[in-house]
Design a protein around this nucleic acid. Sequence first.
DNA 1: TCCACTGTAGTAACCGCTTACTACGACGGC
DNA 2: GCCGTCGTAGTAAGCGGTTACTACAGTGGA
Lengths: 375, 375
Amino acid sequence: MRQPAHAATGRGGSGRRRGGASGPVTIEDVAARAGVSAATVSRTLNGNYPVAATTRTRVERAVRDLGYVVNAHARALAGSTTRTVGIVVNDVIDPFFAYIARGVEREATARGRMCLIAATQGDSRRELAIVDLLHEQRADAVVLVGGAVADPAYTKQMAARAKALAAGGSVLVLCGRPSLGPGVPTAQVGYDNEGGAAAITEYLIAAGHRRILYLGGPAELSTSRARLAGHRKALRARRIPSDPKLIQTGAFGRRFGYHRMQELLAAGPDFTAVFAANDVVAAGAMQALHEAARTVPDDISIVGYDDVPVAAEVRPGLTTVHVPLEEMGREAVRLALAGEDTDTNAPPTQAVTVGTHIVARESVAAPSKGARRQR
Amino acid sequence: MRQPAHAATGRGGSGRRRGGASGPVTIEDVAARAGVSAATVSRTLNGNYPVAATTRTRVERAVRDLGYVVNAHARALAGSTTRTVGIVVNDVIDPFFAYIARGVEREATARGRMCLIAATQGDSRRELAIVDLLHEQRADAVVLVGGAVADPAYTKQMAARAKALAAGGSVLVLCGRPSLGPGVPTAQVGYDNEGGAAAITEYLIAAGHRRILYLGGPAELSTSRARLAGHRKALRARRIPSDPKLIQTGAFGRRFGYHRMQELLAAGPDFTAVFAANDVVAAGAMQALHEAARTVPDDISIVGYDDVPVAAEVRPGLTTVHVPLEEMGREAVRLALAGEDTDTNAPPTQAVTVGTHIVARESVAAPSKGARRQR
DNA sequence: TCCACTGTAGTAACCGCTTACTACGACGGC
DNA sequence: GCCGTCGTAGTAAGCGGTTACTACAGTGGA
């Protein structure tokens, strides 16, 4: 496959590349065909250097005739950017991740970047490995999406990755997860999980509920923890005792919501409302409620978090906390690529926080007399 | 940033790289630190050439000490593969695409590949542009997911891309869309849209339905066309006249299913069953049906296509055609990378077809007396 | 003792582009 | 008419790896 040097540097007269039989077309081939140097072709293609109009035309024609497609790897190696951004998600199916990924993809594409994507399946060891792979690819930015496990060893390792990435000129963006510690060079896109959770808990309290079930995600995940913390804070603020039996953690899937709710219902429920840690869990719980012939919101009120489509599709519509997921993804890219136009490197650590708000649908009502009596 | 030649080739004694202040670590740095040549480091890292155990240890230690991370672009440029596969989807949110993308991602990751992903938003011009971008990236395989527009000009252009890609050693995989024509080098993963549509139409007919509404996707999309063709074929086989008013095309989204069904219901329905061209459309239609106080399946039966989660989540459960989406994605990668282990290039054009089957849930019943009389 | 092997490791030629320098003809000011 | 500028384009040195050759100790057989 390799050609000896003299072949590559040989005269590049008009006779070459006629049949296209001699391997991929390179910039040299285009240069030869247009009767200019490779440098001129490069300049024409990149448009960052003055090229005479006639020359430009000749080059463009040669490109078209030969079907030349620039090699991004050669470009990345010679240039200073790869025009690539990495996205790390748990699972591409999960709407929470999918919406953020969509935002990242759209913003990156709009800025002429390609996206590298990989799924961790919730395994933080795998996540570290993926970040390494993205480092190999020299992605201009690496966006870590969603909650992180609260494990010091993990945090330390990821912090080391962040530093290595920064040393190489790329930036690690934490999208919806806590900082890796002071001094660790990252960008951050956050949303106020604790505040949102407190607000929607307060919403339930305001509707008259006192016995509220928290039906949450994995206990070790930062997102679940923050939401639970907000929930507790709201209860505390209203002097409502927190009952351990009403704190149920486990997972972020529909399955979990469905099965755990079935169990609780079978055990004799002692709550008038449910705060599901995300909409998907809420949807599962609503299914269990429905099958157990409990009416939402007449028998039991329920709220979710995230405001993904399922919240609007279930019946009754789910009252939830709206999180601008796609916007978070876009913001992650903006933040990471903010310094691209300026000469100076952007300040290493920056953060933005997006706002959330409650979307009231039909899943909340005052507790029923029956439920009250039941206590 | 660039260093003059003499600096790069200078003695690489043990003194270098101590502070990590001189830019990214390269293989030369590792070689110097380990007291071997770059070639030996490369061989150690790639493990495709015998290296003495003691040497290997020294190299590995140097890699660790220096925090060396290989540069994938340099590797791609020098080597013959980029260990990268491209995925082209309509939208990362749509479950049809998301499941196939998940299959591609999982299989690619399992084979040590990274995935490049981009969304076309259903615009075939954008799709062509994305394929070009993926060509620039020299992806080992490019997977085009889902239906294509039936437009000769488009087909011709994509065929040209396929040839260019093939000339460069990568393969274009058509996942769930028709061939680009004879002689165009592609791999294909298909599923029998026509057969599946015919089968589920037959299922409705067998339940007693004669007036079946086809509620379908975009008229120009290969997938919608094939499903409609199958539907018609089944009607013809049973000598059931096809009524133009019962053929409704438009889009593949929930919105379309919901609104079109509302309109039809308002106009006075003349059908006892609905064949929605996919589950998402079916879910939208079911919502409209519900809001109009029509009971599924007592008043109207409905079936979908794809068997994505929403089919199992709606009430009543949706009878649909199961398509092994994730498996299709995996198969696409397998096909594309089939020749990687063998010396000989794999035959240019290959195809596999995955099987589909009907999943019977609760959304189909015999037409009601009332509906029959209504005719 | 000499030599053909065998196992390891080094040398250097690329891979295909970008870009800092350098070169050079045309032009306008003095 | 001479020279400093300006607009263009060429030269060549990398970017950071991989790998075909080549080199050179040991080893065992003749």
